[in-house]
Design a protein around this nucleic acid. Structure first.
Length: 120
RNA sequence: AGAGUUGGCCAGGCAGUCGCUGGUCGUAUUCGCGAGAAUACGGCGGGAGGAAAGUCCGGGCUCCAUAGGGUAGAGUGCCAGGUAACGCCUGGGGGGCGAAAGCCUACGGAAAGUGCCGCAGAAAAUAUACCGCCAGCUUGCUGGUAAGGGUGAAAAGGUGCGGUAAGAGCGCACCGCGCGGGUGGUAACACACCGUGGCAGGGUAAACCCCACUCGGAGCAAGACCAAAUAGGAAUCCAUUUGUGCGACCCGCGCAGGAUUCGGGUAGGUUGCUUGAGGCGUAUGGUGACGUACGGCCUAGAUGAAUGACUGUCCACGACAGAACCCGGCUUAUCGGCCAGCUCUCUUU
């Protein structure tokens, strides 16, 4: 999985997928403005889903921007990780951060997650 | 050149790397007798806005019943036109602001009825008389007044002359107002036009209300199709006393009954889904909104939701902000830049 693509199979698509992650959360890393939940799957690849509440991130432009940046990071780095389903949750204040700040923040969380996963 | 004002246009550019999405072409694999379909990979070109926003109006489209009559309710409110329609737009009229260009205007009815109107003031609408003024006499009372003063946002027209005890539309002239007519205008309305009446009776209708006109309801999570689970119904035809259900309510309409037939439809998927009251150009009618004719154009269609990220570079250093069925408006947010018309001021020739 060294090619850097991002297809429909790599996304959490329905409510049942999301619920499964919430019920079987094994991985959890966070900062003040971001939270990642993870649960192992047996599909042979990772999947990602977003929960970005309108209450926390008020304008659609910022919600789109956050999703695009994180999705792009996931696309490039997904091969570094075991197969799992991840949910990215945005908290209040994230829309105040610039693109590079979000990239750095997510990168820190990502490697924390990789360590947590491999130590298991 | 500066100040103002109105209308229109643009919304960082370029290059590279890595992606996403739908279209099309090609190749491969699978399915199919076949037309073709699905999946994967590759090539090519497409991929947010002026407000995509708020959801405040209007319409298309879909379903409810074929959307019909009445009541209730809601909306609109100077006139004429435009439009699919509108609460929008255009032109005109009245009123207000400005030196002007121009801007603002919820602008029907207070003589159908009801309600409300603080303080001050004698009195806020049936009128009335605090200080005055005048007359009379018993010198502080009676009568006559509303010119003057005072209160107030507002005191039952204004100015002048006559008149009178003092005054007063009491009389007259002009201004204002009402009514009737005339003229101009499709009309709202206007008039330094004519006649007539001494003269309307406060404000508030974005208070109830009255008058005129308009409006059936719900929305793409509408609706249609495929279909695990689960439950026993569903569709068509016939009948319509009674029972029951339905939209804000009524008139009204549907369902239950009998017969025939067999599928039904939650998760999920497919569709609706972008060619449309579309945009561009030319000609033409119109003051204009806009209409008509001809030519050629196709310009996002996602669905846990694409349209991006990173790097370099240039400059004016980039605001507000992301389509979700589709259009027409309105409103609100917005870094800046460009173009055109008009008004005023200054300088120069």
């Amino acid at each position: 999985m060294t090619d850097c693509r991002f297809t429909r199979e790599q996304r959490l698509l329905n409510a049942a997928d999301f619920q499964r992650v919430f019920d079987k959360t094994k991985l959890k890393v966070s900062t003040r403005e971001l939270l990642i939940l993870g649960a192992a799957n047996d599909l042979g690849h990772s999947r990602i889903g977003f929960i970005i509440a309108k209450k926390n991130i008020r304008t659609a432009v910022h919600r789109n921007r956050i999703k695009r940046i994180i999705r792009n990071f996931f696309r490039v780095h997904c091969s570094e990780f075991d197969t799992a389903d991840l949910i990215i949750m945005a908290r209040r204040g994230l829309d105040q951060r610039s693109n590079s700040e979000i990239n750095r923040m997510f990168s820190d969380l990502w490697y924390k997650l990789v360590r947590q996963s491999s130590s298991r």
